[in-house]
Amino acid sequence: MVSTVALECSCGAVKGELAVVPGAFFHVHCLCCDCQRYAEHLGNEAAILDEYGGTELFQTYPAHMKITQGHDNIQAVQLTPKGIYRWHTRCCQMPLANTVRSAAVPFVGVPVTFMKFASEQDKQAVLGPVSLKAFGRYGKGTVPDDVHPRFPLAFMPKILAFMVKGKVTGKSSPSAFFDGKAPVVEVQTLY
């Protein structure tokens, strides 16, 4: 059964909704250094990162996400010229999503902090458990034993199958972050 989750930034200026479609997402915990540098750039580490320096993400298709309010508050950066696009709010510096640089690729990673749930139990009922915990070598403190030190190559066939399915079914659009092939805002490169 498809569930719809409300999206809202910290100050409430940017809102949207996300369709949680069974079999069309990955619920992941990423502890990579890029996510940490991005949180540092936004100056909002405490609200973005958990105690291990990680970010809980919901990776799905762009067609399943829409922004309904606050389009004028959307900004984007990429850490390096070949890096992914990292979308955030201008108003409260909250991450909205990660995408690759091409509108044709059916992928969007939405931070769970941008989602609105009544409780932790409600979140678990809708999103289910985290299916991948990666990049533990960049974690802060003593990370849990079930966090892979890098990205596990055994997970790659699932990602590729997900991308192929999204491409064949046309799930790369509509996209909240691309107008045709172009990003909806100019993307700033940081480094």
Rank of each mutant, 00 (worst) to 15 (best):
Cys35Ile: 02
Leu190Cys: 13
Glu17Phe: 00
Ser119Asp: 10
Leu190Arg: 12
Ala24Thr: 03
Ile159Lys: 10
Lys15Glu: 08
Met156Cys: 09
His27Arg: 03
Leu7Gly: 00
Val28Asn: 04
Pro22Trp: 05
Tyr61Gln: 07
Val187Tyr: 11
Gln78Cys: 09
Thr89Gln: 12
Tyr191Arg: 15
Leu79Ala: 07
Phe25Ala: 13
Val77Asn: 10
Asp72Ser: 12
Lys82Gln: 15
Val110Thr: 04
His41Pro: 07
Ala182Asp: 15
Glu8Trp: 02
Asn98Asp: 08
Gly12His: 02
Ala13Pro: 03
Ser172Ile: 01
Arg86Ala: 01
Glu45Trp: 08
Ala182Ile: 04
His148Asn: 14
Cys30Arg: 06
Glu8Met: 08
Pro95Tyr: 07
Gln93His: 13
Lys82Val: 07
Leu190Glu: 12
Val100Phe: 03
Val100Glu: 09
Asp145His: 03
His64Thr: 10
Gln188Asn: 15
Phe25Trp: 02
Asp72Cys: 12
Ser3Asp: 06
Glu56Arg: 12
Thr55Cys: 05
Trp87Pro: 03
Thr68Asp: 08
Lys181Arg: 13
Asp145Gln: 13
Lys66Asn: 05
Asp34Phe: 06
Val130Gln: 03
His71Ser: 13
Leu7Ile: 06
Val168Asn: 06
His88Ser: 13
Lys66Val: 05
Ala154Leu: 06
Trp87Ala: 15
Thr169Tyr: 03
Ile67Pro: 08
Asp122Ile: 04
Val2Pro: 10
Gly70Ile: 00
Phe151Tyr: 11
Ile74Asn: 05
Phe178Tyr: 12
Pro22Arg: 02
His88Met: 10
Val5Ala: 03
Pro95Thr: 04
Pro174Trp: 00
Phe135Ile: 10
Met1Tyr: 02
Cys91Asp: 11
Phe114Thr: 09
Gly43Gln: 06
Phe155Cys: 09
Pro129Asp: 15
Gln59Met: 13
Gln59Ser: 13
Val21Pro: 11
Asp179Gln: 15
Ile48His: 02
Phe178Thr: 10
Thr169Phe: 07
Cys30Trp: 02
Tyr138Pro: 01
Met115Val: 09
Glu17Met: 04
His148Ile: 03
Phe114Met: 13
Asn44Gln: 00
Ser119Met: 05
Thr60Leu: 08
Arg137Asn: 09
Cys30Glu: 07
Met65Leu: 14
Val108Lys: 00
Arg137Lys: 13
Ser175Leu: 03
Thr189Gln: 13
Met115Thr: 01
Leu18Lys: 04
Leu153Asn: 15
Leu42Glu: 01
Asn73Pro: 04
Tyr85Leu: 15
Lys158Ser: 14
Pro111Ala: 06
Gln69Trp: 04
Ala46Ser: 15
Glu56Asp: 14
Lys66Tyr: 06
Asp34Glu: 15
Ala161Leu: 14
Leu7Ser: 02
Val187Phe: 08
Ala103Met: 02
Val126Phe: 01
Leu7Asn: 02
Leu57Glu: 08
Phe26Asp: 06
Leu96Ala: 07
Pro129Lys: 09
Cys35Ala: 11
Asp122Lys: 06
Cys91Ile: 10
Gly43Asn: 06
His41Gly: 11
Gly43Val: 04
Pro22Ile: 01
Thr80Lys: 10
Glu120Tyr: 07
Ala19Gln: 15
Ala46Cys: 02
Ala104Thr: 00
Ala134Asn: 14
Glu8Phe: 00
Phe177Asp: 05
Leu31Gly: 00
Val164Asn: 13
Met65Ser: 07
Gln75His: 12
Glu51Val: 11
Ser131Gly: 12
